[in-house]
Write a protein that binds this DNA or RNA. Structure first.
Lengths: 206, 206
DNA sequence: TACTGTGAAGTAGTTCACAGCT
DNA sequence: AGCTGTGAACTACTTCACAGTA
């Protein structure tokens, strides 16, 4: 039996489908079509059908997709039927804002540990979390089984801290530092950098 | 004379090249090659050469690229040789963290106006900015010539506020709200949503 | 020698268009 | 009648490989 590898670009669209479908679900919409979903998020209907067909046959000819069923399927595909623990590393303004953001918990992500290297911050509480010494990451992260980290440290130390995280067993990093991380190929990194996004947009402005 | 349109995917990589090159510049590196730059950011050398060739011939055979010159060229291509004014809309935790972030100013982006609709927040100062009533956006944004907005309002009002911004003359929106905005085709939108990124990564974890 | 810039080749991604089902 | 799922066609993107040049 051959297990076809799904292109990463397809995987990257699934969360957007899920977001739109959850919104429909909250609105009480029971059924949708690839057409309607596509219009909601600006993607062609054929694209959506093709993407979903990589994982199974979720629709019904003539009627489309059950919103609730497709939400379930996407959650299952994306492994969202469990709670994911997160480590938050770097408790500056951004780290603090993320600690307080309710969206993580609402989507099954639980910030379980927060770290900083500043003695002034260590021991302080933010949103129910006690900030811990980043020198303890190697011990605490494996003991809590945390696999995902959000990195909100200054660019100057981001590479070093990222390596420590990998050493502590982290497999995926959401990188807020404005620098490219160089890590082993089996570590998944996603970057969030507003400057990069703004510079992309200015190209089109005058 | 035909002006070839550069693919958006190429434009999107230019800021990453620029980021790495500015880093090299600060490190005192005078010259680099497509090979070296590619290794720094995990992109093939051929890709970088092809991308740059869309805009001109910036390298020298045998020696590679002058870091300072290529930084200048990329800044020029991306229209970064001027200050861009930004409107910050929504002064919750995230809006506050962005208001205090030094990175914008360091890269030629100046947050010139901050808005919220909460009477408790209006008139307060954050990082040298007075928070203004969002009902004033239509008047203030054109008067300051602001073309770019960062949207950090709750998802429930994001679409409505985005439409008001477009109405006020905004041409590009950096959208932090966890929702797809539906706006005219000539408005550039970039989304920053940590949940979407995390859900992308969980696919690969177990 | 060491690199760029670039056609050509190769690979990946998207859209078309329609059979088939409800 | 209305929609999905999917091969086939098409388009876009990336890599190869090498002529050209400092």
């Amino acid at each position: 039996m051959i297990t076809r590898t799904v292109p990463d670009i397809v995987v990257g669209r699934l969360p957007r489908y899920l977001q739109a479908l959850e919104h429909m679900y909250r609105e009480g919409i029971k059924t949708t079509s690839s057409q309607e979903l596509g219009e909601a998020i600006g993607i062609s209907a054929a694209q959506i059908r093709k993407d979903l067909s990589q994982f199974g046959e979720f629709g019904k000819q003539g009627t489309g997709y059950s919103v609730a069923f497709l939400v379930e399927q996407l959650q299952s595909i994306l492994k969202l039927t469990r709670i994911w623990d997160l480590a938050l590393v770097g408790m500056g303004d951004l780290g603090n804002a993320l600690a307080r953001y309710q969206g993580f918990a609402e989507h099954g992500f639980r910030i379980t540990a927060a770290f900083d290297n500043d003695p002034e911050k260590i021991g302080k509480e933010v949103a129910g979390l006690i900030i811990q010494d980043s020198r303890e990451m190697k011990r605490i992260i494996p003991s809590l089984g945390i696999k995902i980290a959000m990195l909100t440290v200054p660019a100057s130390v981001a590479q070093m801290v990222a390596e420590e995280l990998v050493d502590a067993g982290i497999r995926a990093i959401l990188n807020y530092a404005p620098i490219s991380l160089n890590l082993p190929d089996d570590i998944h990194v996603e970057n969030i950098d507003p400057i990069i996004k703004l510079q992309h947009m200015t190209y089109y402005l005058d």
